[in-house]
Amino acid sequence: MAIEVRVPTILRSYTGGSKVVEGSGDTLTALIDDLDAKHSGLKGRLITPEGGLHRFVNIYVNDEDVRFLGALDAKLNDGDSITILPAVAGGALGFAAAAALLGPRPTAPATTPDSTEG
């Protein structure tokens, strides 16, 4: 079962630079396991150690947010299109500036995507 997965720039170090990869699985969990087998380390960027979807990762099945479709248990079908995106809202630069002004939000260390999950 082929499912097309769009990978954001910040995760392409795991896919050899590929923007689009293919995977298979009848649920999102199965798909992510399959992707991780081919692109080692990718799962660790999407799933927290507790087994949930990372707070700052959004995954869309055919343009719809999986958190409203059963999250990791979301059912997938052949031909579905998956998009992975970092969570941003209202314009990345605007909120980054806002966050900096407010201060309390812990600022992520300037590391490469290979750093371990925080």
């Binding site: 910040i10 995760l11 960027r45 990372h54 707070r55 700052f56 990762v57 959004n58 869309y60 343009d63 719809e64 947010d65 958190r67 409203f68 998009t83 995106l85 970092p86 969570a87 941003v88 809202a89 209202g90 990345a92 909120f95 980054a96 966050a99 939000r105 992520a108 300037a110 590391t111 490469t112 995507p113 750093s115 925080g118």
Partner: peptide, 23 residues
């Protein structure tokens, strides 16, 4: 963004208010 941990969810956001979310 340079890595996922630089992402942001507005403090106002409460997912329980929404039923669906399209990109």
């Amino acid at each position: 963004l340079r890595n996922i941990d630089e992402g942001y969810v507005p403090e106002l956001y409460d997912a329980t208010v929404l039923d669906r979310r399209f990109s």
